[in-house]
């Protein structure tokens, strides 16, 4: 007897849950050959708004966790990713048209990138912070702190999993929470990645994934007063100067688009931090 396959419903990821879009919309995800693969939820501005609320709620807990603990939690994600490699390889081959070898290489690169950033969790402060020389009996220390809630547009034309990972990992490391719009035409890996998040130790709301159109969502993101920084990595094809102008209204930090996949660097971590300088007496002389 033949069996009916059970296709997966790809939904959004908000606050640790997988809701459908409040708008009720979906869009078709096709293979490179143009064949129907799945329906993905087409996120709306209200989904985005809900995601920002979830991210804001989760932010104090995530940034309040010790750096060591955040590193452990992030490392755990890489472990779970490793165990689900086959699923990601399959989705990448199907939607991006990669060969099995290319797809496997992308998943490996994504896991390695994640590990690379996870390692920085309890180290970036030491490297990016400093003791400033002052002429008095004080310590003057500058330390980077997470910015808060970060909105991100993942790369839209390069590897869907690697691009997503290279975008959100540096945001999360320092204790920010993120609302990310993944690659529009290849959102399946992002939702499968969200399933990894949901089954590892990341608190709900730390990562929120809104699949859909960056052109529709980015302006709402840029003008949202409760988003503290905006990563325009994958916004190269949008009118990103206007997005930066809208973001400036609420003094939102922005990071300009990149070609391809953002290179792993400490600068991407510190781009989403604020420097706090503190004075402290050296002794009671």
């Amino acid at each position: 007897m033949s069996r009916l396959a059970v296709p997966k419903t790809y939904k959004l990821f908000i606050g640790g849950k997988f809701p459908r879009s409040e708008s009720g919309r979906v869009y078709e995800v096709n293979s490179v050959a143009g064949e129907f693969v799945a329906n993905a939820a087409q996120g709306s501005r209200k989904d985005m708004r809900d995601a920002v609320v979830a991210a804001r709620t989760a932010q104090p807990g995530w940034s309040g966790a010790t750096a060591y603990n955040r590193g452990q939690v992030l490392y755990r994600i890489a472990e779970v990713l490793e165990g689900r490699k086959a699923q990601f390889v399959e989705e990448i081959m199907l939607v991006e048209g990669s060969s099995a070898k290319e797809a496997a290489a992308q998943v490996d690169a994504a896991i390695d990138t994640w590990i690379w950033y996870a390692g920085w969790a309890d180290k970036y402060t030491q490297v990016a912070g400093q003791a400033n020389p002052v002429s008095g009996p004080y310590f003057n220390l500058s330390v980077p702190e997470p910015t808060g809630v970060v909105g991100a547009i993942a790369p839209q034309s390069s590897g869907s999993l690697l691009g997503l990972v290279a975008t959100i990992a540096p945001i999360l490391v320092s204790g920010n929470t993120v609302v990310v719009v993944p690659r529009e035409d290849a959102p399946l890996t992002a939702i499968s990645f969200a399933e990894v998040m949901a089954t590892s130790d990341v608190p709900g709301g730390v990562v929120n994934v809104i699949t859909g159109s960056p052109a529709e969502l980015a302006p709402w993101m840029a003008s949202h007063a409760d988003i503290n920084a905006l990563d325009l990595a994958g916004a190269g094809n949008l009118d990103w100067a206007s997005l930066q102008i809208a973001a400036a209204e609420t003094l939102m930090r922005t990071l300009a688009p990149v070609e391809g996949i953002p290179a792993s660097s400490l600068n991407r971590i510190t781009a989403f931090t604020e420097v706090k300088s503190v004075w402290h007496t050296k002794s009671l002389i």
């Binding site: 003008s223 949202h224 007063a225 409760d226």
Partner: peptide, 9 residues
Amino acid sequence: SGHYSSADY
């Protein structure tokens, strides 16, 4: 204003 506000305001 037409855009989402925040608790900072």
